[in-house]
């Protein structure tokens, strides 16, 4: 029964005697309460900083990584457009709104993707990312529960950060993948080419896309000196 699951999920995400749950647990709770194959939480700051707080399995990791590498996909749309995004069948060519993402996500084993804005009190913090390993729609009550869960997860992020010294990132959130190596590499490439860091980031992204590899792989190549620009 959806109602019972939601109640269970609310209790799991809440602060208890042991403090707030870890990100991995929050992801699992979202996955299990919504009866999907996998889930992830993406944190997006207004300044374009993007990080994956948690993913429940390699496919959901891939879904978040692809969106970071390619700059397109369901959770970016959910965040930017501030609405629920549902793609029940990625293999349907008529509905391919993210060509590069769709191809790679399908190959990785995701057949349906859904994303809901992570928000609390009108503040948007990112997206809750869901996927299914077969074409499938979400029912109205799954979506309704998903919206409620995304609100709970956003409250969890706020509770974690609110308990931290100003200036620092909450210990709970610091386990997220904020693609730090990509930023190291962007700094290096900006010196190699004499361009602003922002531009270096775009060049890295373009290079990764052209080579068909993850942005993180390209970044590691720059850091180890295997790849140089200019």
């Amino acid at each position: 029964m959806p109602g019972k699951d939601l109640e269970w999920a609310a209790a799991e995400i809440a602060e208890n005697a042991g403090g707030l749950p870890q990100p991995g647990r929050v992801g699992e709770v979202c996955r299990d309460a919504l009866h999907v194959t996998g889930a992830g939480l993406m944190l997006i700051s207004g300044d374009g900083v993007q990080g994956s707080l948690c993913t429940t399995d390699p496919v959901s990791t891939l879904i978040e990584e692809l969106q970071y590498s390619l700059g397109e996909g369901p959770c970016l749309d959910a965040y930017r457009q501030d609405q629920v995004v549902a793609e029940p069948d990625l293999s349907n060519p008529a509905t391919s709104r993210w060509p590069a993402f769709t191809y790679a996500a399908l190959r990785g084993g995701a057949h349906a993707v859904f994303s809901l804005p992570l928000k609390t009190g009108g503040l948007r913090l990112g997206s809750l990312d869901l996927y299914m390993d077969r074409p499938a729609s979400l029912s109205v009550d799954q979506i309704a529960d998903g919206i409620v869960l995304a609100g709970l997860a956003a409250g969890w992020v706020m509770a974690a950060q609110g308990a931290t010294t100003p200036g620092a990132l909450s210990d709970i959130l610091t386990t997220g993948d904020f693609h730090l190596a990509v930023h190291n590499a962007a700094g290096m490439v900006s010196v190699q080419l004499g361009v602003p860091v922002r531009e270096a980031l775009l060049l890295l992204r373009g290079h990764a896309f052209a080579q068909g590899v993850a942005l993180n792989t390209t970044a590691q190549d720059v850091i180890t000196g295997r790849l140089r620009f200019g």
Binding site: V49, G187, S190
Partner: peptide
């Protein structure tokens, strides 16, 4: 609302700060 906005600002600042430091490390390394 003030409290939420403040936490959100702190979150953005902390994330930005972390990323600026990584970018600066790359610049100095190079």
């Amino acid at each position: 609302t003030d409290q939420l906005q403040r936490i959100n600002d702190q979150l953005s600042y902390a994330l930005n700060s972390r990323i600026l430091i990584e970018q600066a490390k790359g610049i100095i390394a190079e």
